[in-house]
Design a protein around this nucleic acid. Structure first.
Lengths: 348, 348
DNA sequence: TACGCTAGGTATAACGATATACCTGTGGCC
DNA sequence: GGCCACAGGTATATCGTTATACCTAGCGTA
């Protein structure tokens, strides 16, 4: 049998090496007073020599703090990788958690309705995390109640459904992105503008559609088409097919995310429709993807990393890890690139 | 002061409700023998009624098993979201971990050299995870030694550097993807073929370049250009610029990942070079992105989800959670789409 | 009858860190 | 000189589970 390494040092080993009690070591590493400077030094040196760090499990058991945050992403792998929305949020969250030694416990569940709830329940029941981040606020969302019942710290990225008293983070001037997108199109002479939205159970889907319609109405216009889609490439291709089939086809389309927009652009060009010559296309989120393609995608930038960071800070504040949760999130703004132009039939 | 909910039930509460000792409860939930069927039922009912689940922290402290796996991704948020490589791996890993109640603790660190090591060290020192997944095997990789020294279960996704005795998962027939990509091009009459690789410290970069050169050599050809890039869009654009500037410009380019390939295609078209008419382009990984764009990207498919799953299984096996770690990973294969065609100057 | 054996439990010591309560020696002060 | 205060510690209960050792009743057997 092999010796299992040094067997992992414990606080007792450090105490023994420094010639003090375990309590003294604990006090030093937790910054409590009552230990003289020379003793403190001896203890710290001993800890360094043994490469000792407090065991997360023991700390968690004692203090009921796990120093971890949970997040459940409800998406199929394919969709997840096609749309790096989550990835950016996660990056933002991590960037705030890391410096404080917090970890992010991630669960990816499929579309089965019960899987998500089960995942949250497990995180809470097993006390694996100190808080959770919720994304994609949905109509009739039951997750808040569940988590409140489980006594879990929660923060939502997005707009709460109704007036749910859940802490939420969102950018100020939330409608500015969609509004300036529509106005950009109108200013370029577009009169028939379509919207391809995400699934209707999302709160932001309805919100953005409302802004879309209101902005058009302010210019005495109505949506030419509104198609409910599903964030997939296939959905986008299908939507574009239907839009272009129409005798009164739109001259511009807004998509609910960038991957649909890119897929839509390709579908249009495959049908012999030039972007932006015959059809202007606008995406949403400003993922790196949009800059990669030709023509580059005009899109509504959303500060996803900022949203992630802000969400993390809200949780950290309610865990008394930081004083002030506030962090300003850049408001959504239109990024004009190459996929939009003057309305067809007007340009010459 | 508000009563803090039910105060979270413990095993003792369950035992009390069932009228047995805590030990009896523990035995039942862990499937040990020595408890009669009726008592077992009483205990299970009590547990259900109280919604009790063992506290992860206490279990971890006792058994030294945290039921969590760690992973450190070393990338900037931008790069991470441009290239969903990691996302797919994570999906695969999660799909194996979830059913067994294991969690994935994710850390995203920037490019600073020390950050990654610090993250691994922290995972190990604090005993937050039972094992870690390593990706992107690098030349002169120090992570294995570090983790071995820390006594951490480790699995590498990719080819180990030298003969490092670290458990690794990779597809069989690893070179088949790159080889058939080159052969596809040669068969279409391409003679001047370039390769835009990722950073040179990656093991797979060198490996693929070797396969690239060997396959060409088998057809009495040599690489027209080899450019070392960095997985970014800017890097790809720059590379394409240099390739097309050359009087003896290549008629085909292979890129080390799909985002570079897509960015490269766009750059070419922006320079008035038709894809695939004037330049054939091949990517690597087969991310959903490749199907979104126009023309659709010919690429080398890699079973990233499978690799993630296999890695998770190796760890689970070494943690005695499953018997057999084996899982077959689909070998890399060429997916021919629209971005490749006959060599320019040959077609008519 | 005494003995052993087993099924079906119970009591309790870990696991590692922390907070609380409790010592102890020294100096200051009246 | 006697007493107190306080710096600088120590000893230990505790968190929730699990594993180990140990009971105990009931039955079969010599």
């Amino acid at each position: 049998m092999v010796r299992r390494g040094p067997g992992k040092p414990t606080i007792a080993d450090v105490a023994a090496l420094a010639g003090v009690s375990v309590a003294a070591v604990s006090k030093v590493v937790n910054g409590k007073t009552g230990i003289s400077a020379p003793t403190r030094e001896r203890i710290l040196t001993a800890a360094r020599k043994l490469q000792w760090t407090p065991s997360a499990a023991a700390v968690a058991l004692r203090g009921a703090k796990t120093r971890a945050i949970g997040m459940v992403a409800k998406r199929s792998p394919d969709l997840l990788s096609a749309d790096p929305h989550f990835t950016l949020l996660i990056s933002g969250i991590e960037s705030e958690l890391s410096p404080l030694g917090y970890g992010l416990l991630l669960h990816i569940v499929g579309e089965e309705p019960s899987a998500e709830e089960a995942a949250y329940r497990r995180l809470a029941d097993e006390r694996r995390v100190d808080g959770v981040v919720l994304t994609e606020s949905r109509i009739g969302d039951t997750r808040f109640e569940l988590l409140r019942a489980l006594g879990m710290n929660t923060v939502l990225i997005g707009t709460p459904w109704r007036d749910d008293p859940v802490p939420a983070v969102q950018a100020s001037g939330l409608d500015s992105g969609m509004r300036s997108a529509v106005e950009h199109l109108v200013a370029h002479g577009h009169r028939r503008i379509a919207y391809v939205s995400g699934p209707e159970d999302r709160v932001h889907t309805l919100y953005r559609r409302r802004v879309f319609e209101e902005t058009l109405a302010a210019h005495d216009l109505a949506p030419s088409h509104t198609i409910v889609s599903d964030f997939t490439a296939a959905g986008a291709v299908d939507a574009v097919g239907r839009l272009l089939d129409d005798r009164r086809r739109p001259t511009a389309v807004l998509f609910a995310n960038d991957s649909m927009a890119v897929a839509g652009m390709s579908a249009a060009r495959r049908l012999g429709v030039d972007v932006p010559g015959d059809l202007s296309v606008i995406g949403h989120d400003d993922l790196p993807l949009g800059e990669l393609v030709y023509p580059q995608l005009t899109t509504v930038r959303q500060d996803l990393v900022g949203l992630g960071r802000a969400a993390a800070r809200v949780l950290l504040a309610s865990l008394d890890e930081i004083e002030d949760a506030s962090l300003d999130i850049r408001p959504p703004e239109l990024v004009v690139r190459e996929s939009t132009g003057p309305a067809a039939g007007r340009q010459r």
